[in-house]
Amino acid sequence: MSRNKVLAITAAVIFLGAVIWCAVILLKPKSNIVNITQDGTLLYSLDLSREKDRTFTVEYKDRKNTIEIKDGRIRMLEAECPDHICVDTGWLEDVPIVCLPNRLVIDHADKTDTDAQTR
């Protein structure tokens, strides 16, 4: 087998692997516990099924991020950053909400952790 064929197959395997990995992330069962992390430190750990509807702000170097909780869902309502990708992500579902400029991450806690908590 020629070197090019080996490389082409490697590329195809990486591509298919990535597709499967995407599916795994999208199909993973989600817990109700949501972690809000900034710059590597955990700010809040919220149980969405118990939270009341509210909005609150998180600051990073004088730039504000407004987070909204409504009907057991969470999203970034406003962000003072150049790209607004975190706002465009919408409600937290499968992929974590990330604000790269303000180093803020909103993500579901691992399912295993919450199982341990509820038992």
Binding site: W21, C22, T37, V95, P96, V98, L100, R103, D107
Partner: peptide, 23 residues
Amino acid sequence: AAVFVMKTTTVIAYLPFLLVSGC
């Protein structure tokens, strides 16, 4: 770089999506 800057491995969840679009 994102893992390094954000100090969290959560952002790796974006890698497969980036890889599919990147390919």
